[in-house]
Design a protein around this nucleic acid. Structure first.
Lengths: 199, 199
DNA sequence: ACGATAAACGGGACGCGGCCCGCTTATCTT
DNA sequence: AAGATAAGCGGGCCGCGTCCCGTTTATCGT
């Protein structure tokens, strides 16, 4: 539970050989150095391997792919955040009432994300444009217009983003494919969400 | 407004030369054929170019990158969906009241997305794992637990996804970076969303 | 009609990510 | 201690996306 093994990541096998753990540490150190000096975008399989003095194959085997490496890098910060909301002090931790914890969780997550922003963004290349694309903008404008008409005192822009995010393609596909959730339940979820917001 | 020019996509210049428009059409046709026969994943710059009988450079210049090509492919279906909620019949179109339109919008978007699922997924490689990663699962479990305690009759799983999606890294970064939105407003948006849901 | 000009074309070059296989080396057993 | 065994290692290989530049060709003014 001390070093990055609190939850099994992909490719995190147990019983690593001594040279393997040594190389793993070297790779993480090299990647962190690269991220600090030249930004997380500078983290490439080849560069990290060279910086750590090992072969590319070693990176691939240990972390699976570039994403696995980035997630391993995020692990320390992630773990602290997890402890904060799982067993930390109020308002995040279990001593506060659920409503307080839920209210506090969002900002806490936001700050955690911004503290590791470049790493998160490096893990999702080409995600920058996801929202800038015309169809997306149009949908958002439309939903925001409806929200504005229905809830004049709400932050329609944000609420529209929240609504649209809840039926995001990748999310819904994950629910349907990986969890066997019927599409009808997702539709019902949308109706439920809208109805609760409209009071 | 007739063919793919209803909204300016990246690289959609006006006054294309005759051979350029011809090659553009050939490329889209080739890409559609490839997607139909071998799945959207088979759409590679090289293959599409070869199938259309042009050079790779032509694809790159016309559509910018692979994503641009995929979005151009989505354009037809996208346009029909847009017309449906902008000027179509109720409950989506402007003749219905806002609440009805908003309720209907989600399922409509869901069906549009599923009709073009492979294209959407091809545009976001490695997005499959976004939700399968341990930290994500843990956050979701936590939020769902809180939601379940606060709203026993709600679909806590879905509501938790909706809440988490509203503070997604990429979304927030887009708001902050591209729209200059202060982080404090995003935090206030979370509180507002939670409060509205809790009634 | 024809020449000037800019737009478009082709495909090679480059860098990166992921994979694989022949060699090396830590570990375990007796 | 030494050999057997499997885990680990290295770096070459391939496919893909993107960029670039020398060449071709449509377009437009005269």
């Amino acid at each position: 539970m001390i070093d990055g093994t609190h939850l099994p990541l992909i490719g995190e096998e147990t019983h690593l050989r001594a040279d393997a753990v040594r190389n793993r540490a070297r790779l993480l150190e090299a990647a962190a150095r690269l991220a600090a000096e030249r930004g997380a975008a500078a983290i490439t399989m080849e560069t990290v391997a060279a910086e750590a003095g090992v072969g590319k194959g070693t990176v691939s085997r240990r972390f699976g792919d570039r994403n696995g490496l980035l997630q391993a890098l995020l692990d320390h910060s992630e773990q602290r955040f997890q402890e904060a909301f799982l067993s930390g002090p109020p308002p995040l931790g279990p001593e506060a009432d659920p409503a307080t914890r839920l209210r506090a969780f969002g900002p806490a997550l936001l700050h955690h994300e911004r503290a590791n922003l470049d790493l998160y963004l490096a893990a999702e290349p080409a995600a920058e444009r996801r929202f800038a694309v015309p169809p997306r903008r149009l949908r958002h404008t439309h939903v925001a217009m409806l929200v504005r008409a229905l809830l004049p005192d709400a932050d329609a822009e944000l609420l529209a983003h929240a609504l649209l995010s809840s039926v995001e393609v990748v999310l819904v596909d994950h629910l349907v494919r990986d969890h066997g959730m019927p599409l009808a339940r997702v539709e019902a979820g949308w109706h439920d969400l809208v109805d609760r917001l409209l009071g």
